[in-house]
Amino acid sequence: MNKKVVPFIVIALGIGLFAILAASRGFAVTLGAFFTIGIFSFLYKDNPYYKFSEALFVGISAGYWFVSLFWQQMYSKLFSQVAEAYQHTFVNGGGWDDRWMMLVGGVLGVMMLMRLFPKIGWISRWPLAVIVGATAGLYFINYFVSNGINQIGATIAPLQQYGKDGSLDWWASISQFLLVVGTLSGLVYFYFSKEHKGAFGGVAKIGIWTLMLTFGASFGYTVMSRMSLLIGRMDYLVSTWLGLVK
């Protein structure tokens, strides 16, 4: 057999099999299974089947996100809000409406599009500056509170912990001790003005060990959640598509 014919035979067989399964199990379900297997085929090696699935996935998702962002952002947060503000202010005579502020975002968006015109492309830097500056300012307090103030507040507690009956709770006390040591040594690790040497380096080492132990526990936990994702796809193939498991 001519080697050039083989791919066509494989494709023809594939289409035939797909048609049979689509007829018996449903077109949409079979299509989902087809692309699931296509993405999984990457585990063997990069191949045309994976490339086809990948290209379609990327292309469709990019288009989907464009439409989704249009309706979620442009329409619901700009057009409809401004239209309602117009109704409130001019049609109902209700005066100023806070929703007019949405126009600021709209103007910044239009400024961003100025990069399409090389002569005035510099205008697009202004909305970028607004986004970067506003992000840094807004998140400063959030991060400072969640990563700093709250952590210190939660660390400050007596080392000796008592049970409900008033007796010393050894496990809770050891736990509190480890919490204090772990938090403070972790803080030392993230001190950048001094090299990790001597006693300071020793404390920093305790800090990094604490972090690594945490990562180990987190790794195991997250791997299990990824396993559940895999089981979900396998369940789709075996139960929903092939109907082998009821």
């Binding site: 993405i39 699935s53 990948e54 996935f57 990327v58 998702s61 990019a62 989907y64 996100w65």
Partner: peptide, 9 residues
């Protein structure tokens, strides 16, 4: 693409 796993693929 904006899609998380499309990007990863």
């Amino acid at each position: 693409t904006d899609d998380q796993f499309g990007y990863a693929a």
